[in-house]
Structures are given as C-alpha cells and as structure tokens.
Amino acid sequence: MENESKQSMVFGDVEVIRVVEWQGPLVPAREFVPEAGEQVWKDNEDWLAPDHWRPEEDQAVVALQSWVLRSAGRTVLVDTGVGNGRERPGSQRFHHWQGDFLGALDRAGIRPEDIDVVVNTHLHVDHVGWNTRDEAGEWVPTFPRAQYLLPAADDFHYGPRGGYGKTGRADERLMYEDSVAPVHRTGQAVLWDGVHRIDENLTLESAPGHTPGSSVLRLASGGERAVFVGDILHSPVQILDPAHNSCFCADPAGAAATRRRILARAADERELVVPAHFAGQGAVEVRAEGDGFALTRWAAYGPGR
C-alpha cells in the first residue's frame, strides 16, 4: 500500500503523520512469533485477519513505515525504512530493495530538507536504510539538515568495535557502513543512552531487549499521549501475551520484560501504542486484562493540519 492520502493524528500541540512505504504478507505467522501457538491466531482470527494475518496463507502481515512528528517548531522523523539498492545478502526480502519512501514522504508534504531530527529507534536494517542515499556511488545523509539520534548501545554493538567487528556478519557490517557511518562522518550523529529529551513534548527512553539499544519515543502534549515502540512489538498477538517474542529479539528475556513494562505504562496512562510494523491502522490503545493486555481501540486518522 502506498501512502497516497495523508494519514494524520494530533496530540495536543503535536501532529503525527504516518508514512507507509509498503505493507503486505511477509513471513509465516508461527515463524514470526514462534512462542504464540497456532490456536492463538485462530482464536483471534476475527480481528487479526486480514490486516495482521492472512489465514489462508498463514502469513503475518506487516508494514514498512515511518512517522513524522511536527513538534515545537521542528519536524522529527521516526525510523527510515529499508533504503534502496542495499547489499543485504542475509535478507532476501531486503536485498537490493527498491521502494518509494521519498515519494511517500513527498505525498505527505515532506521534503528531505524539512527534517530537523531523525530518530532511529534501533539499528536494524529496516529502520536505518533511508538515513542515507547513494549520490554518485557514495552514501550521503538523505536529510542534510537533520540531527540523527542513535542509541549508543546499538551503535557500539553493530559498529566496528562491537558486533560486525567481532563476528564478521556481512549484513551488520554493510548496514553500519552504508546507513550509519556516513552520518558520523558528517558530524550529524548524536549518540544517547538512558533518557534523551528532544523537546517539551518528546522524550526518548532506552528499552533494551529486542536489540541492546532498542528505545521508545514518548509523546505527551495537552494531556494526550502516545508511545512509539519500534520493534518491541511486531504483531498484535504479543499484546495478548507479552511473553511472546518475535523471531528477531536478541535477548528474549529482556525483550519480554521490556514489552510488559511498556504495555503496562501505556495501559495505565492511556498512551496510544505505535509500533514500527503494525499494518492496518498501525497504532492501538490497550488495557490490562488477566496476565496480559487487550486491545481497546485502533487509531483514528483525521485530515491533519
């Protein structure tokens, strides 16, 4: 699905614009969330299908998307997708990917030079790709005026001193060299850890587990709240039981504990939960129920500003 019409929500003084590059079936459901048994999907088919699960193919449906926040006079981009023309030999889906991310931004009325801050919730290949673009065979920052906020723990883990420097994993090395190192070279990268205040409405918080540096972005303005959770959630079945990790979680115990903590606060404070990869409406309000949580309502979009 391309983002041909603007999808926008307003929280107090902050406008949130959803930018969808692609959505569709990606991987078998039981591979995607291995700890969620077949019955969980079947018992919830009435609302999981077709936006989050294709039962006839047993495929989990996901979105590749970003969120643009207009806050305190600045424009903040949360996550930057896969990026075009990347060498990703370990990921058949993303190897030499060609998408229309910049076109989707443009249709939402946003140019690269409009972005003041880029937030990478974590440094996986599908969250940092459009940090850069290819100009005459060289990777350069896509957003020339932006400050890039990178979780310090992930920058170390995936950079030459940590992950790929020790393990030699090709995709991690390639990701770091084409999508992260260039913003360091231009002086646009800012490493942070713990809590980082962007402005009076937006705060980044470390939320490790999925990766060492996974983070969430909290929005609070005018009594309204949202939390952009990155890959802490991949599928709505993880809301029902936060112990269920995706197949991509590096630290399963840590990821499950973080997921429960984030969902509990979201339920207590009525934060709209905004995951990186939920298809359909893309964001949801939750409530505590038994040992897990339940879905209260999906996001509602208006015409924006």
Rank of each mutant, 00 (worst) to 15 (best):
A146M: 13
T75N: 09
E269V: 02
V284T: 12
H95Q: 04
R161P: 05
P212H: 13
Q7C: 09
V19L: 11
S8V: 11
H124Y: 06
A256H: 04
P28F: 14
V19K: 05
T121M: 07
W22S: 14
T121R: 04
L105E: 14
R218K: 07
P25K: 04
E289C: 09
L69Q: 07
Q98C: 10
S214D: 15
Q39W: 07
P28A: 13
A63F: 07
V19A: 15
G290H: 08
N44P: 00
H184Q: 07
V76I: 15
I115Q: 14
V125A: 01
L102A: 04
L64E: 06
I110T: 02
H244A: 13
T167I: 02
A288N: 08
H96M: 11
N3I: 11
F156N: 12
L233A: 07
R261Y: 01
N245T: 14
T121A: 15
A299D: 12
P303C: 05
E289I: 01
W41Y: 15
T203H: 07
T142S: 15
N120M: 05
H95V: 02
D46F: 05
V119S: 11
E177F: 03
D178V: 06
G230T: 03
G302E: 04
L174N: 00
R145D: 11
G302P: 10
G159R: 06
A294H: 06
Q39S: 01
A136F: 00
R74N: 11
E224P: 06
S8M: 03
E21V: 15
G90Y: 08
P89A: 07
Q188G: 12
R259F: 04
V27P: 04
R305P: 13
R287Q: 04
Y301S: 13
A220P: 03
F156K: 13
Q59N: 13
V273T: 10
E56Q: 08
S5R: 05
W53G: 09
G159P: 13
H196P: 06
E205A: 09
T167P: 00
G37Y: 13
A300V: 12
T80A: 03
A276Y: 05
G99D: 08
P208M: 07
E172Y: 06
V183F: 11
D268V: 15
L202Y: 06
A243I: 06
A250Q: 14
W97I: 10
G168E: 05
G137M: 05
G222A: 07
R86F: 03
Q23Y: 14
E289P: 02
L272R: 00
V183Y: 09
D171G: 03
V40M: 04
L77E: 05
R197K: 02
G165L: 02
P275M: 01
R265H: 01
G81M: 15
D43F: 05
A152Q: 09
M9C: 10
P160H: 02
T121F: 10
R173C: 02
A189K: 15
S221V: 03
V14R: 00
S8R: 12
E177A: 07
G24L: 04
C249V: 15
Q39E: 10
I239N: 15
P112S: 06
V195L: 09
R74D: 11
V216P: 00
D241V: 03
R111N: 09
V76T: 12
H196I: 06
G165K: 02
F156W: 03
R107I: 08
T132D: 15
F32T: 14
F228C: 14
G230S: 00
L202C: 10
R261G: 12
Y164H: 04
H95G: 02
A257I: 10
V284I: 03
N201H: 14
G282D: 00
V10L: 09
Y164I: 03
